[in-house]
Design a protein around this nucleic acid. Structure first.
Lengths: 338, 338
DNA sequence: CCGTGGTGTCGAAGCGCTTCGATACGCAAG
DNA sequence: CTTGCGTATCGAAGCGCTTCGACACCACGG
């Protein structure tokens, strides 16, 4: 592996000139820069990571804490990890994966050994042990997700509440007066930070628009299909004509199957809107309107904020909500043909 | 963050003594070691990662290349990433995640900057671009999976061929004379390294045991269920009484549903064995016998090998196959009641 | 002509650790 | 009493980079 000293020699300049040329922190004449860049290319030079960390007090590494649990829904989490990694690369940062069940241990270890410049916190629980730790860590952190107690933290997330509100609006605008939310199982409301926000947004907007609303949280203990069937039954019995779906892909499919089995067509008999999905609802049978959760949107912003936290223009703590976007796939229509 | 110098001071010894006490590379008296350990605890000391890399020529980091593709089956891949991370922690190693589509770029970058001590290669394709690169890299690598051309590489994997062979044996031992393999879609046979090995093991053992065998690779282009139904139809039409399943969870479920729909009971009418699954087949309806792919087994071994490659007792290149284990859940019985 | 300020480059001092060789000590053997 | 050796510890030299302050040079105005 070539070293900066060899580059300097090849370019006929001093070591420090090479360093400045590469970092751009001091002006270097065009000609000198050209020679240095050529030497770098010829020698296939890349600064040694350890030396850079030690001298520069920059590791160019983000720690990513993602405490994989048994019940973790893999596809969504993988999408977030991937999106974070891609976002980090834009700034020439790499991602160190912390997966230990004792999430705090990893964060503390990495911070104390100066292995990372900042911590990105994924899969945030409403009452997350990492919140308290983040406050006392000596490197900055960004939460992708909003814990209950987020005082002094920098958080990024989709505005789930607004998303649910827009879903309700769409149904109300189409003329529905009785709507229902088919949500994640009740347990998810303690484990994850966003289901409660969807529910709150749903209920608030329903109230504001004067709609009758019902919330059903199927228990997936046994067969998923059975639970979804039961929940859907409750909603339909109450005369629901518009349904907001906030659950995983399997439950979506099960719900659509069940509607079909009951002879109900979407959107002719029932209107459906999906909220906060990370999977593709546009190729379902039928395609569903959706206000998706886009990992890239949150992760790009999270990485941007992390970079700012490392600069001297430190942004203030607070929650940054990403505005939801409505994608129309034709699953909402006026009620009443039933 | 405390530094080694402060630890030395607190323990009343020199810096080098602290270093040796912590690394164990020279003998330190029990009493001195005690004082040092106490100082470390009190100061909450952790060696600075950058300094360690620079001076020690050890980064304590493994790079993990996992080129997430659109068609990646998330749960299995996540399981491997997690297993690797856990295995690495046993040696106080952290994992740096390389996800770039251009997988080689990340490997090269990390190797050239000395960011990692070794590369762990996941999600290996039969004709993987990382193979050639690994040969020319100046840090060692371990492949979890076996590429076609694995000359000079260190590879670890489940012995898929043996697993398929054992599955066939089980069916043959139970008295089945006509068996079928319901495999991954044909495309997977180019993308991944193990489907061909399962197929080869299946066909070879079937031949050895004198069985009639059929291989069906459903195309999941449209609805999964439809494809699985068709493939299963072909197998049953040919008089298959024993089925080996080597496909994803969804296809398993679809296959069992389809059997039930045809009024065929497992194992009374048809025997079924699952091969190389990472998901739980014991809680399916009905529970299925399985020769599972256990991420932990492969990843533990891969990390062990990586550590050896970093030691002076460098193991020879070659393929290390993990022996498959048969888990009986009662889905195989003698044929003929049909 | 000298002073002034901007521009481009260099030398050297670290960053915090590991590790080599040297040293000091005590103890058994000669 | 010296010699030799093993044990426990120390000092100092890097590891490869960043960055600070210094300096040389040139163009400009006075």
């Amino acid at each position: 592996m070539a070293k900066i000293h060899e580059v300097a020699e090849a370019a006929g300049v001093s070591i420090s000139t090479v360093s400045y040329a590469l970092s751009g922190k001091r002006t270097i004449s065009a000609e000198t820069r050209r020679r240095i860049e050529q030497a770098v290319r010829e020698l296939d030079y890349r600064p040694n990571a350890g030396a850079r960390m030690l001298a520069g007090r920059r590791t160019n590494i983000f720690a990513l804490t993602e405490p994989f649990r048994a019940d973790t829904y893999a596809p969504a989490h993988m999408a977030f990890v991937l999106a974070t990694s891609i976002a980090a690369r834009r700034y020439d940062y790499d991602v160190l994966l912390l997966t230990e069940e004792q999430a705090s241990a990893g964060m503390r270890r990495v911070a104390r050994s100066g292995l990372a410049d900042a911590v990105l916190v994924l899969d945030v629980a409403p009452d997350d042990e990492r919140v308290e730790l983040a406050r006392h860590l000596d490197i900055p952190s960004v939460f992708v997700g909003v814990p209950n107690d987020h005082d002094g933290l920098v958080c990024v997330d989709l505005d789930f509440e607004a998303a649910a509100g827009l879903a309700v609006d769409r149904l109300a605008d189409a003329g529905h007066r009785t709507i229902g939310l088919l949500g994640h199982p009740a347990a998810a409301y303690h484990r994850s930070n966003f289901p409660p926000r969807v529910r709150a947004g749903f209920e608030r907007r329903a109230r504001e628009r004067g709609l009758a609303d019902t919330v059903e949280l199927p228990e997936f203990g046994g067969a998923r299909r059975v639970a979804v069937r039961a929940a859907l039954g409750v909603l339909l019995d109450r005369g629901v004509t518009g349904i907001v779906l906030h659950c995983d892909e399997e439950a979506h499919v099960a719900a659509l199957d069940e509607l079909a089995a009951r002879g109900l067509r979407v959107p002719d008999d029932v209107s459906v809107v999906s909220v906060g999905s990370t999977f593709d609802t546009s190729s379902m049978q039928p395609p569903l309107d959706v206000l998706p959760l886009v990992p890239q949107a949150s992760c790009d912003l999270a990485v941007d904020l992390a970079m700012q936290l490392l600069s001297d223009a430190v942004p203030p703590p607070g929650v940054r909500l990403v505005a939801p976007v409505y994608h129309d796939h034709g699953s909402v229509a006026p009620p009443g043909r039933r």
